[in-house]
C-alpha cells in the first residue's frame, strides 16, 4: 500500500543552490521553508475538514460500538466487543455480506471491462467525437433516486417493461423480486447504468495521456491493435485502473441507495434476497430495534473488510497490470 504512487522518485525540488547566486540568502531560507512546509499546507484543507466531518464521526462511532447504545435512549453500559460478536453471530449479517459481494462483483467486473472496451473505441479517430463521449456519460446525470424509481418500475415482476418485452419473445417472466440472483442482477444493472460511462471517461482520459510514440514504435514492430491494447494501453493505464478498482470497491461495498429503492419496503426483500451490509446497518440503527451500538459495530466491521479487500485488490491489480509493462515504462 505504501507504493500507491509509482516508484518514480521525486527529484529534489529545492532551487539548485549551486547554480543560484549566494547573495540572496534570506530568500533562499524562505525558499527552504517554502519547500518544507508547502506540501503539508496544501494537503491540510483535506485533513482539517476530515477531522471535523470524518474523524470525529469515526471516533464517535467506535466509542458507540463498545456500548449498549439506543439511538434515542442514548448510551448504556460499556460492553466491550459484545456488539461485534452479536453481529458476527447473526445470520442476517452473513446474508447481507453475501449479497453485497455478489452485487459488487456483478457491477464492478462488467463495469471495468466495458469501460476499457468503450474507452478504446472512443479513443479511436471517430467522427463527432464529442457527441459520442458525452453520450456515454449521459446516464450519470440521472439522480440515484430517479434511477431507483425508473428501474424498479421497469423491473416490476408482473407489470414491468422488461418482463413484458421478454414475454413477447416467449420467455417466462423473471422473478426479479423473489429470486436472489435475478434481484442482484437487476440492482447491478442500475449501478452499471449510471456508472459505466463515468468509468469509461476516466479510463479514456488516461488513455489520452499515453504517449503516442509508443504506439508508433509498436506499429513499426508489427504489433496488432489488440496486441497494442494489451501490451501498451493496459500497462500504461495502471494507476488509473488501480484508481477505478479501488474506488469501485469502496463504493460498491457500501452500496445502499439502489437496493434500498428496489422495492416498496427498502429492507432487501421478504427473504432478504438483496439486503446489503449498509442496509443491515441502517435497519439495526434506524429500524425498530434502534441499536446504535450494533449498527456502529457493523460499520466498523464493514470498514475493516473494505480496507482488507482494497489491499488485496490493489496488489492483484498491480501484479496484473505490471506484467509486461516494463518495456512501456522504460521507453518513457
Amino acid at each position: 500500500m505504501a507504493v500507491i504512487s509509482p516508484p518514480d522518485v521525486a527529484p529534489d525540488l529545492e532551487p539548485a543552490a549551486d547554480r543560484a547566486p549566494r547573495r540572496i540568502a534570506f530568500r533562499q531560507r524562505l525558499g527552504k521553508w517554502d519547500v518544507k512546509l508547502s506540501p503539508y499546507l496544501y494537503i491540510s484543507p483535506f485533513f482539517l475538514l476530515f477531522a471535523i466531518v470524518g474523524l470525529f464521526p469515526l471516533g464517535y462511532t467506535a466509542w458507540v460500538s463498545l456500548h449498549e447504545w439506543h439511538l434515542i435512549g442514548g448510551k448504556g453500559d460499556f460492553i466491550g466487543f459484545e456488539n461485534y460478536s452479536t453481529v458476527l453471530h447473526a445470520a442476517f449479517f452473513w446474508t447481507a455480506l453475501r449479497n453485497t459481494f455478489s452485487i459488487f462483483l456483478l457491477s464492478a467486473v462488467p463495469q471495468v471491462f466495458l469501460g476499457l472496451v468503450l474507452a478504446a473505441l472512443l479513443d479511436a479517430n471517430l467522427r463527432a467525437k464529442t457527441f459520442w463521449r458525452m453520450g456515454v456519460l449521459l446516464p450519470y446525470v440521472v439522480a440515484p433516486v430517479a434511477v431507483g424509481l425508473i428501474f424498479s418500475k421497469m423491473f416490476a415482476d408482473q407489470s414491468g417493461l422488461i418482463n413484458t418485452l421478454i414475454g413477447h419473445l416467449g420467455i417466462d417472466p423473471i422473478r426479479w423480486h423473489a429470486d436472489v440472483l435475478a434481484s442482484h442482477f437487476a440492482i447491478a444493472t442500475m449501478v452499471n447504468f449510471r456508472w459505466t460511462g463515468y468509468t469509461t471517461l476516466i479510463l479514456l482520459a488516461a488513455m489520452q495521456a499515453v504517449p503516442r510514440d509508443l504506439y508508433e514504435a509498436s506499429v513499426i514492430d508489427g504489433a496488432s491493435r489488440i496486441r497494442q491494447f494489451f501490451s501498451i494501453t493496459i500497462p500504461m493505464l495502471r494507476p488509473t485502473i488501480i484508481f477505478v478498482v479501488i474506488t469501485s470497491t469502496i463504493g460498491g461495498l457500501q452500496i445502499f441507495d439502489e437496493p434500498k429503492m428496489f422495492d416498496q419496503y427498502g429492507q432487501g426483500g421478504a427473504d432478504r434476497q438483496w439486503m446489503t451490509v449498509t442496509m443491515y446497518l441502517y435497519e439495526l440503527g434506524w429500524g425498530s430495534q434502534k441499536s446504535f451500538g450494533r449498527a456502529a459495530a457493523v460499520a466498523w466491521i464493514l470498514f475493516l473488510i473494505i480496507i482488507v479487500i482494497g489491499l488485496v485488490n490493489f496488489s492483484i491489480t498491480r501484479r496484473i497490470s505490471s506484467a509486461g509493462s516494463t518495456a512501456g515504462r522504460k521507453s518513457r
Partner: peptide, 15 residues
Amino acid sequence: HLGQWSDDWTASFQN
C-alpha cells in the same frame, strides 16, 4: 399475490 404498495399492486388497479 400482490405485495401491497408494490408497483405491480399499483398497476393492478387499472387491470
